[in-house]
Design a protein around this nucleic acid. Structure first.
Lengths: 265, 265
DNA sequence: CAGTAGCATAATATCGAAATTTCTGATCCG
DNA sequence: CGGATCAGAAATTTCGATATTATGCTACTG
């Protein structure tokens, strides 16, 4: 990476999206400690956080600094609904629009994904799989030949990453055959069959949130996090670029407040 | 506004989106002059530009600073296509989901828009109309009750603003009955009729780009702008949040280079 | 004892300058 | 005459420090 800000931005982003990440939703991100940890000036940390805030991965509150975006059942439901719609759009367009080179790229990306183990030999989660997974889905939708649509899909998928760690940790969904889902997606792509492709992709996207929401509701984990309720704060600056919304109740960490939660899906 | 950065950010954003704006696409945005003009430090201008870059309104190139996003026929076509799809999605959901309060808000916003003149008495463009127009469309789609979807729509509409000034200036589309289009949108909303609503909205969105592209092609204004072709630059950092794409050819300013342009729509 | 004003501490926001990189233009060599 | 080289200038990036604002604790008052 060329500039120092880019490096800090990339590292912060990776840690934010990392399954084994150390950042809890709602956690404050103080500038000084981060600057020391990255051995950089306050300015570069600030710029990195500003960019992440504009993406919606962290929220910026004037005069209060930055904190990790909160998660909530209602936001997860909304996010999932939008992801399904937008990715379906892109997939339909890709199948209609893609050429043989696109088919080849999809097959190649699937092969890589298929041969990458989900877990390391040591037992830990394999970050390489996450990368291959990301690459497969990106390739699949790249055929839509619409940079803007691709950008939106990527942004939404990144937001979804914030929830994935709980899916893996809490909802042990052993019955799932992820490899099979990916195989079917690949097959639908090469046979150029839009409707089954969209159906498979929809189920692929919806499964994790559905399981997670079911777990959360069954265990009553949809209350507010155990932090003091916000006193009169200036409004967090809106991420006009991509993400509105204001999830206030935490998904995890059963507190004693009974937060209002929208019905899932 | 509370912090200085917010003020500069807001003002810069307004000028970038302003019809009578002084910023040309591709124009470099040097920090020192801007800092002097806003009577602020480099830091605040830098942060404002960083946020705008993440939104895709300006592009940031490492070690080279910021510049106004370029426009191109192919980007306009892509943007329009995506806008139609995403706004249609939101509108369908709003009509299905909205309640009486939503209908009332739509009627109210339409009334305000209807009674706001497009041009000032003096003849200049009325910024108040732009605001009312924006409010009407936002209200119309707010019924979808999906913060993420709303955010995406807003972001796309802002990007479209970058093109609107040429539509007004170049393609004098006198046959257009904008007020009628808005009236029909309002009527479809209160009668809860999805299909005609989507049809009207689609035409409403597509009209300006279509006219503008026709004008550009008829006048051969789709060549590269009269600036030196980019020498080997480090890649502009991708706006992962919202907007990909890399429009290189300018829409206006007939140069002598014959840029490759994708077919419109 | 509850509630509030005031003070000390900590964190953010802003600034101005130093350090690094890129651009410009003139000079020099083949 | 064309192309490479190399200072000087300009712009960006990064830094450390200062100013401003929020936070938490203590002491005081009703």
């Amino acid at each position: 990476m060329s500039t120092r800000t880019e490096a800090v931005y990339g590292e912060l982003r990776r840690e934010l999206l990392d399954l084994s990440g150390q950042f809890e939703p709602g956690q404050r991100l103080k500038l000084l400690p981060l600057a020391e940890r990255f051995d950089a000036s306050l300015s570069v940390v600030r710029e990195a956080l500003t960019r992440l805030a504009e993406q919606g991965l962290v929220v910026a509150t004037p005069q209060h600094g930055f904190s990790v975006r909160e998660v909530s059942v209602s936001d997860l439901a909304d996010l999932t609904r939008v992801r399904v719609q937008v990715e379906s759009l892109a997939l339909r367009q890709a199948i209609q629009n893609g050429d043989v080179a696109w088919e080849a790229a999809v097959v190649a990306a699937h092969h890589t994904l298929d041969r990458t183990p989900v877990e390391h030999a040591t037992g830990g989660f394999n970050e390489g799989w996450a990368e291959a997974h990301r690459a497969f889905h990106q390739t699949l939708l790249a055929g839509c030949d619409s940079p803007r649509l691709e950008g939106m899909v990527t942004s939404l998928r990144d937001s979804a990453e914030l929830y994935r760690r709980w899916y893996w940790a809490l909802a042990d969904d052993h019955a799932r055959d992820i490899a099979g889902e990916h195989r079917r997606l690949r097959d639908c792509a090469v046979t150029r069959d839009p409707e089954p492709a969209v159906a498979v992709l929809t189920e692929h996207i919806e499964r994790a949130p559905r399981e997670l929401i079911a777990y959360a509701q069954h265990h009553g984990l949809d209350a507010a996090p155990p932090r003091k309720p916000a006193t009169s704060l200036p409004p967090a600056r809106s991420a006009a670029a991509s993400i509105g919304g204001s999830p206030v109740s935490g998904l995890i960490d059963g507190g004693d407040e009974h937060g209002q939660v929208h019905p899932p899906l």
